[in-house]
């Protein structure tokens, strides 16, 4: 036992020495990783609840029906929509960011009001970008942002109009946005100093592209209707703890597919 241990150590040392000699001469190119996963509701999909919007007939034109969006589960495949996974870093300036993503796009990020709901329901943007709050409806809306680090805003957006808001700072938590004229309207804005945030689509699929491979990355998962943080998940049949919604992983270059992540109904309110 003793012997084998010291041999092992020696081997490791040797390997380490070799690596450092060769490694120092060759430039190791940073490799990039894509992260994929699919969130699925582990139970009978809850149905969306209808919203009483009769107060504003303009919202109900052309037979429009409005339903709650705080728990959107796909009836056919159980996919959970609007789960967000964000990279959690204290200082994004030290983070390796894929060259294509290094600079935030100069384009505005759109938050539209369509048929009396916010579209998209969860907006993702980077600090320093401009959020264009647009109203494609015939009726008037307001957008009340409960920012914590940025200045809180509550603006009226008349029919057909847009209002630009420059969002300077990262927000630790997703920021709720409400329309007080139509109280069922609620959305979220996620503002980060980096581009690594994914939001699950109608099938529960979530993708984050261009992450630095080969280093430990910490993510936090969030859903607006979570019952406390999502701290337990079932990945491909195996239970895993995501303490307070945090999960740490080291990705290999190229695609990393975590597969199906099942969330028990108790994870939600």
């Amino acid at each position: 036992m003793k012997v084998s241990m010291s041999w092992l150590k020696f081997g490791l040392l040797l390997a380490g020495a070799l690596c450092s000699t060769f490694g120092a001469n060759s430039v190791i190119a940073q490799e990039w990783a894509d992260l994929k996963m699919t969130f699925v509701y582990d139970g009978k999909a809850p149905a969306a609840k209808p919203v009483d919007a009769s107060k504003d007939p303009l919202c109900l034109e052309d037979g429009n029906k409005i339903v709650t969006e705080n728990m959107v589960v796909n009836a056919t495949n159980g996919g959970i929509r609007y789960i967000a996974l964000s990279l959690d870093v204290k200082d994004a300036s030290k983070l390796k960011i894929h060259p294509d993503l290094a600079k935030a796009s100069a384009d505005k990020v759109l938050l539209d009001n369509v048929k009396c709901v916010f579209v998209p329901h969860v907006v993702v943007m980077r600090s320093g970008q401009t959020l264009e709050v647009k109203n494609s409806d015939k009726t008037g809306h307001n957008a009340n942002f409960g920012f914590f680090k940025n200045q809180a805003q509550n603006v009226t957006v008349p029919s057909g109009a847009s209002k630009d808001l420059k969002i300077e700072k990262e927000e630790t938590a997703p920021t709720p946005v409400e329309c007080n004229i139509h109280p069922w309207m609620k959305g979220y804005v996620i503002v980060k100093d980096h581009p690594y945030v994914g939001v699950s689509d109608e099938n529960g699929a979530l993708v984050i592209k261009g992450l630095p491979a080969g280093e430990e990355l910490k993510f936090r998962v969030w859903h607006e209707n979570q019952n406390k943080a999502i701290s337990e998940v079932t990945i491909n049949g195996k239970k895993e703890k995501w303490d307070r919604g945090y999960v740490t992983m080291t990705l290999k270059p190229g695609e990393n597919n975590l597969g199906t992540i099942k969330l028990a109904p108790e994870r939600f309110k």
Partner: peptide, 9 residues
């Protein structure tokens, strides 16, 4: 009017 939207509230 719809622009000011005062009457909504």
């Amino acid at each position: 009017g719809a622009t000011a939207a005062c009457a909504n509230c």
